[in-house]
Write a protein that binds this DNA or RNA. Structure first.
Lengths: 208, 208
DNA sequence: ACTACTCGATACCGAACGGTATCGAACCTG
DNA sequence: CAGGTTCGATACCGTTCGGTATCGAGTAGT
């Protein structure tokens, strides 16, 4: 099974190679852009050569698709986890959610940039549009359900359905991330949370 | 290309050529992406060849920069014009503004896509970052001032400063446009207007 | 230990692109 | 009409990149 230890050179597992390539792709693509980075660049950043990429992913598009899959699922998990604790009052929960999403955006810095580019590619490519929209709907549905569970019975404004609230939440998160990309200082850390609390807790008076 | 009334072949003005190239660039870049479209493609779409582009803009980046300038100013004019009429009540004005911005996004369809790509480029390029941030601040300042003028004395929530309201407005517009890009049906036309009215007119009760 | 197989490394190809040098026709000027 | 200038058309170059065919070291089965 393994000729590990001292002396013998071990060949990395296929999974190890895959993971290393994906991680390198995320870094390099985010920094240089997907079109701006060559397959050689990505492979080299992972300590391999082109051959490894084509052996594992078939094409550059295959690598991009795999990266999209990995990242989107990560995003969904993060989002759901952020709204997991159903203990505190609603407005406070909204504020916590905003802070959490903001923190995610900030710690992953250039991931936003890559996310935008993946979005563009998906919209532009004829085949990818369908798959992307399916993923998008899944995420939307998950967020909507979470919204329903959290706001059930609470005094949220009737002007916004849970469905629309989910859309608003996603749009706001992405929009603020975009804004922060252009000018990090222009977007306070707690802005998202305050806006969410404002929209959600409309029935309650503001407590300074 | 065109024959004049007197029978002689007329050469188009330099300004005509410039305008035609910019218009073609907006179309072609939006559809194929900036990196995805060659200088030949753009020139051909305008009825010219590469030579015209390099004679007028010096480089592909020069063309992109000129296009950015033209489009951003258009955007600002549209936005300011949308909030121009200061007659109607505030909430109603907010709703009208939302509808107007939404309409702009919809009629220019793939402009959003191009806008995103320009944004990316600006953030990524070392020199462009500064110029882009300057433009961004100008736009933000203009929007902030408009917000101050419109909400002066009205009962807007103290949780959001005019500055933050401007950021929120821009982020929301872009975020919803992004969302609509992925799934046009998921974003109702009047959502932006309703949310704005909700945030702005927090003091007033909702009128169905 | 021999053999068959896996899979990344290497060398290479054809195409596409940005950019440039040059050419020639359309326009000024006198 | 003549000479000069502008400016887009054309041909061409160097480079880069995605993709492929092939090779060879490491691995597993017997």
């Amino acid at each position: 099974m393994e000729t590990n230890g001292s002396g013998a050179r071990r060949r990395p597992t296929r999974e190890e190679v895959r993971a290393a390539l994906l991680e390198a792709a995320a870094r390099v693509f985010a920094r240089q852009g997907i079109d701006g980075a060559s397959v050689d660049d990505v492979a080299a950043a992972a300590g391999f050569t082109k051959g490894a990429v084509y052996s594992n992913f078939g094409s550059k598009d295959g690598l991009v698709a795999a990266l999209l899959d990995a990242k989107v699922s990560t995003y969904l998990v993060q989002g759901l986890d952020a709204v997991a604790d159903t203990e505190r009052p609603l407005a406070e929960r909204a504020r916590a959610l905003g802070d959490r999403l903001t923190a995610v955006d900030q710690e992953q810095e250039d991931w936003t940039l890559l996310f935008l580019e993946l979005w563009q590619r998906a919209v532009r490519s004829p085949g990818g549009q369908e798959a992307f929209r399916r993923r998008r709907r899944e995420l939307h549905a998950a967020v909507t359900q979470a919204v329903v569970e959290h706001t059930d019975g609470a005094g949220i404004p009737a002007t916004l359905s849970p469905d629309e609230l989910a859309t608003l939440l996603m749009a706001l998160t992405n929009g603020l991330a975009l804004e922060r990309l252009g000018d990090p200082a222009a977007v306070p850390d707690d802005l998202l949370g305050r806006v969410l609390a404002l929209v959600i807790g409309r029935a309650e008076p503001p407590r300074p």
